[in-house]
Every structure is written in structure tokens, then in C-alpha cells.
């Protein structure tokens, strides 16, 4: 069963004509998004700067009460 599913996908990708260009675009796009933008420009700041939910909550509470 797993072999059949694998062959289905494998043959599908191999027989692509116009779709190959699309896959290249998808892969480049995902690379830019996750390996460049996410890594260097878009960290999850609350996760990065605080180690617990309590600290995160306190930080946001401070922001909300002393804007």
C-alpha cells in the first residue's frame, strides 16, 4: 500500500511538464520565507525574549497598563 502511494506520487512528479517550474517557485518561496524571513527578520519575540508564559503575560500586562 505504502509502495503504491509512493509510486503514485513519484510518477506524478516525474511526469510533470509545466508543473516543474511551479515546484521550483514553491521551493524558492518556502526557502525565502522560512530560511531567510523567519530566521533573520521575523522571530517570535515573546517566545525569544521570555522563557515562561507568566513572564510573557507580565510583559504584555505592562504594555497594556503603561502604553
Amino acid at each position: 500500500m505504502i509502495g503504491k502511494v509512493f509510486r503514485f506520487y513519484y510518477n506524478g512528479f516525474r511526469s510533470m511538464t509545466w508543473g516543474r517550474k511551479l515546484w521550483r517557485i514553491i521551493l524558492i518561496k518556502l526557502f525565502i520565507m522560512f530560511a531567510v524571513l523567519r530566521l533573520f527578520f521575523f522571530p517570535d519575540l515573546l517566545k525569544r525574549d521570555f522563557s515562561s508564559d507568566e513572564e510573557r503575560g507580565n510583559y504584555v500586562l505592562e504594555q497594556l497598563t503603561n502604553p
Binding site: 520565507m33 521575523f42 519575540l45 515573546l46 504584555v60
Partner: peptide, 18 residues
């Protein structure tokens, strides 16, 4: 659309926590 989720965490952290 995933980029929007990146922005929630970076640019709108108070909002995404709230």
C-alpha cells in the same frame, strides 16, 4: 498567508498574546 503569522509574532506581539 503564513507570512501573516510571522508578522503576528514579530510586529504584533502584544496583540497575538492578547
Amino acid at each position: 498567508g503564513i507570512i501573516l503569522e510571522f508578522e503576528f509574532g514579530t510586529n504584533w506581539s502584544n496583540y497575538s498574546w492578547f
